[in-house]
């Protein structure tokens, strides 16, 4: 029961503010971010609503949203926000918090986006650089969509648009150690 006049701490708001270095309470819901965002129509809650959800402490609903996974970090919104909130940074913070707490939205788009980023980072961990062709191939295999973009392959491969070979860094060990140490930092926060 909530007693009148009693302040309830909004732990979610505090956590997002701390991680993002912004004050979400600054948002006065003008919606400029929504009209600016190129992908707001793909999100189940556009940025303005996400801001309000954080203010209301709706942690689970925010974590289950696909919005922060669709954010392209294009920073069009933050450039126009009259309250100067770094919205991409806020999106990033709730995404990182959701990852830390191991929440996985069921949205198939989010699953594909996550898989892509995991494969990309795997390439970097292995070679120190991205290996574009292998990344695309692995993405098709791991999303069980073998023929995705195959109609582009003859043109792209024959024209040398997508090279078949790849490069790697000489100090591959240093990169692998960096991945391990960075992971450790991530866990000791």
């Amino acid at each position: 029961m909530i007693a009148l006049g009693q302040q309830i701490e909004n732990k979610f708001l505090t956590a997002v503010n701390k991680k993002s270095g912004n004050n979400i309470l600054d948002c006065y819901q003008c919606g400029k971010c929504v009209s600016t965002c190129p992908v707001s129509s793909f999100m189940d809650f556009p940025p303005r609503e996400i801001m309000q959800m954080i203010k209301l402490g709706l942690k689970d609903e925010t974590y289950m949203a696909n919005s922060m996974w669709f954010c392209l970090t294009c920073a069009a919104c933050s450039g126009r926000c009259p309250r100067e909130i770094d919205i991409p940074r806020v999106m990033e913070s709730i995404r990182h918090l959701a990852i830390e707490e191991n929440v996985n939205p069921d949205d198939p788009h989010v699953k594909n986006i996550r898989k892509f980023h995991e494969i990309f980072l795997d390439m970097v961990r292995r070679y120190g650089r991205n290996y574009e062709l292998r990344m695309m191939a692995e993405f098709n295999i791991r999303t069980r969509n073998l023929f995705k973009d195959m109609h582009l392959a003859p043109k792209a491969l024959l024209k040398g648009k997508i090279p078949i070979g790849h490069e790697k860094v000489k100090s591959a060990k240093a990169i692998q150690r960096m991945f391990k140490l960075a992971e450790k930092l991530e866990n000791t926060k």
């Binding site: 995404r95 996550r114 980023h117 995991e118 990309f120 960096m178 960075a182 992971e183």
Partner: peptide
Amino acid sequence: ATSAHVMTENL
């Protein structure tokens, strides 16, 4: 690129 900052903070 995009992937590192989408998934992790420190890396």
